[in-house]
């Protein structure tokens, strides 16, 4: 990609956010950016390695509760440390899930991660001494060098910074030897092993990286909504995340951004039709998988190719 294109894309993104702020409000924009982080993180797992996770709401919950607990017990701690803590705890759980997943084939990984999501919700309910159980907990605003980030606008800059950092680092990862190793493993496990790429190491790494991003997103989510409870992290949310990645285009970071944006906005307009929401999302994913095998990203790319002749 040339520099001009890159500048154009970033500018387009900024304009899009500006427009959304005007129509749906900053709160939705913040949520959208949080989901961008999740979708990009999930894509590292799904797109690069081809392993599906149906439990990423679990990692989001872990990050959210870590941030809430940090806010409660160490209120002076800077937001950078809180995000790092949320990501790290989530990443450790990523190892715990990733290691057994090594022994499983695709469908069973989906089941195992689904179970993980359920276990996390259950654990939050059981650990009510810390988490408040079903009553949920309020999340203190994060602090940045002593300044408390209270308003939606302050939170916007925080979430935007993390989202940009996520997109940049994940893109770098994709073009580094790690991204190549993950793609190689997806395409041929034996051949990858025979060029010195260790399957257990890289498949676990993918889980860890994905869990780290999602845990960080969980902390941001907690700050944005400022009140969390276990039912905010349902299986449906996990499935929405999968839909974002598939709609956007597996393995494409730009696609994940589009997927997250589209589903977040769609969700706002469908709020009035709660009963049909799952139906419409489900249909959108099925239609997308049939009509756009490379997701929105593929559509844009094809359109771009046609424009250039």
């Amino acid at each position: 990609m040339t520099w001009a294109w890159r500048v154009l894309l970033w500018a387009g993104g900024a304009a899009g956010l500006w427009w959304l702020k005007g129509t749906l409000g900053l709160f939705v924009v913040n949520l959208l950016l949080v989901y961008v982080v999740v979708a990009v993180g999930l894509n590292v797992l799904m797109g690069f390695t081809g392993q599906i996770s149906a439990g990423h709401a679990g990692f989001l919950a872990v990050g959210a509760y870590v941030a809430a607990l940090v806010g409660q017990h160490a209120p002076g701690l800077g937001v950078g440390w809180a995000l790092l803590a949320a990501g790290t705890v989530s990443a450790v759980l990523g190892v715990v899930i990733g290691l057994p997943a090594l022994r499983l084939a695709g469908f069973y990984i989906a089941m195992a991660t689904l179970a993980f999501g359920v276990v996390v919700s259950e654990a939050i309910l059981q650990l009510d001494a810390w988490t408040g159980g079903a009553d949920g907990m309020y999340v203190l605003a994060p602090t940045w060098f002593g300044v408390s980030l209270e308003t939606d606008e302050q939170k916007f800059w925080l979430v935007l910074a993390v989202a940009v950092l996520t997109v940049v680092t994940a893109s770098n990862l994709a073009r580094s030897k790690v991204g190549r190793a993950l793609t190689a493993l997806r395409e041929s496990g034996v051949a990858a092993e025979c060029v010195g790429i260790s399957t257990p190491f890289y498949r676990t790494l993918a889980f860890v990286v994905s869990a780290f991003y999602t845990g960080m997103a969980g902390a941001l989510f907690a700050y944005v909504v400022s009140y969390i409870s276990p039912d905010a992290f349902s299986i449906e949310l996990s499935i929405d995340f999968v839909a974002m990645v598939i709609l956007g285009g597996m393995g494409s970071i730009g696609g994940s951004i589009l997927g997250a944006a589209l589903l977040t906005v769609l969700d706002q307009y469908l709020a009035a039709f709660q009963d049909f929401r799952a139906l419409i999302f489900g249909l959108a994913v099925v239609v997308c998988m049939i009509a756009l095998p490379n997701g929105l990203q593929g559509l844009f790319r094809a359109a771009g190719a046609r424009l250039r002749g």
Binding site: T169, S176, K177, A181, E187, S188, A191
Partner: peptide, 30 residues
Amino acid sequence: ELFSGMTALENVLAGGHRHLGYGFFRGLVF
């Protein structure tokens, strides 16, 4: 057993995996 979806050059680059000295974190920063 080629890595489909990659170019010929990327296949060979994947073969040279272990000769790239930089680690994961430097890959993130590039």
